[in-house]
């Protein structure tokens, strides 16, 4: 396995007596898009703030490229770019002057680099306007540009799709995927929009009440052992229902006949057999759909869709 770019090591945070982050440990690797998921108040923003040195860690540490954020902040943070909650830039300055300002705080950020990023995030027509005239989506784009100015090895984005329109979200998703793939940048994105994360991430961690409850790859499902739901649109329905009920007899397969569809609970490898039997029985098949368990189901299953503690 690769060496991680960021390591969260037994992180704790207390606000007063309230323990908000408990023994959080996980790694993020170069070239991956890592989703950091959790319900409201789970501690996503708090974790990101600790990683960026904005709030103190009660215990534990975050290492970036093996450098401790706690004890060697300036060195560790050179490899990091980010946005925390809303992208708040200087409203009274133009987008370009904002970027110039941040560029001056890093080494070796050229004007060409700035303009290239402006183009990449699609702001070239508005970059010389004051930020106070920007829409939320435009601010998100500018926020992304400032996070990337200094060629960081990891960017951390807290709820970045907030305020983007559907086309913008798609563009943004492709942009991040591309960034991770071509420049080997690690991207850590927090969100609670699960369908979004499913399309964007390679791997995700789920946090609940300050504790990490699961880390896994997107689409990682054990197809061989679990029953899945198969939905078939066919005609005539009555005949199809008869055939399937006969087939299911005495097996673990379950069949439910609806007005226009059949819902069958079966194993993955039984799917071809089912289709063959139906076709041989002179049933016309219009559509076969596998209802895979979504990230959302997994998320609700883990977090119980629960109350905020």
């Amino acid at each position: 396995m690769q060496t991680p770019i960021v390591q969260f090591q037994n992180l704790y945070k207390n606000f007063g007596k309230k323990q908000v982050i408990k023994d959080l440990s996980f790694d993020v690797y170069p070239g991956e898009v890592f989703g950091f998921l959790g319900p409201n108040g789970a501690g996503k923003t708090t974790t990101i703030r600790m990683m960026l040195g904005l709030i103190k860690m009660t215990a534990g540490d975050v290492l970036v490229e093996g450098i401790s954020v706690n004890s060697d902040f300036e060195k560790a943070i050179t490899h990091v770019g980010g946005i925390v909650e809303n992208p708040e830039l200087y409203q009274f300055m133009t987008g370009y002057n904002n970027l110039k300002l941040y560029a001056r705080m890093h080494e070796g950020v050229t004007d060409e680099r700035i303009m290239a990023l402006v183009k990449q995030v699609g702001l070239e027509h508005r970059i010389n306007d004051k930020v106070k005239t920007y829409s939320l989506g435009m601010r998100q784009r500018l926020g992304l540009a400032q996070a990337l100015l200094h060629d960081p090895k990891i960017i951390v984005l807290d709820e970045p799709t907030n305020g983007l329109d559907p086309a913008g979200i798609k563009e943004f998703r492709n942009y991040l995927r591309n960034l991770a793939a071509t420049e080997n940048v690690a991207v850590m994105v927090s969100s609670h929009i699960l369908s979004e994360m499913e399309l964007m991430c390679d791997r995700y961690g789920i946090i609940q009440n300050g504790e990490l409850v699961d880390v896994r790859m997107v689409g990682q499902q054990d197809l061989s052992s679990e029953s899945i739901k198969i939905i078939i649109a066919a005609k005539p329905m009555a005949k199809a229902g008869e055939i399937m009920s006969a087939m299911a007899e005495g097996t673990s397969m379950k069949v439910q006949v609806n007005s226009t569809t059949l819902e069958i609970m079966a194993h993955h490898e039984q799917v071809p057999g089912i289709i063959k039997t139906l076709v041989n029985g002179d049933v016309a098949i219009y559509e076969v759909k596998l209802d895979q368990k979504t990230l959302e189901d997994h998320f609700i299953e883990l977090t119980g869709g629960g109350e905020i503690e």
């Binding site: 960026l52 904005l54 770019g81 980010g82 946005i83 941040y102 705080m105 400032q146």
Partner: peptide, 8 residues
């Protein structure tokens, strides 16, 4: 926030 997450 964006001011403090710099190498200074």
């Amino acid at each position: 926030k964006l001011l403090l997450i710099r190498p200074h």
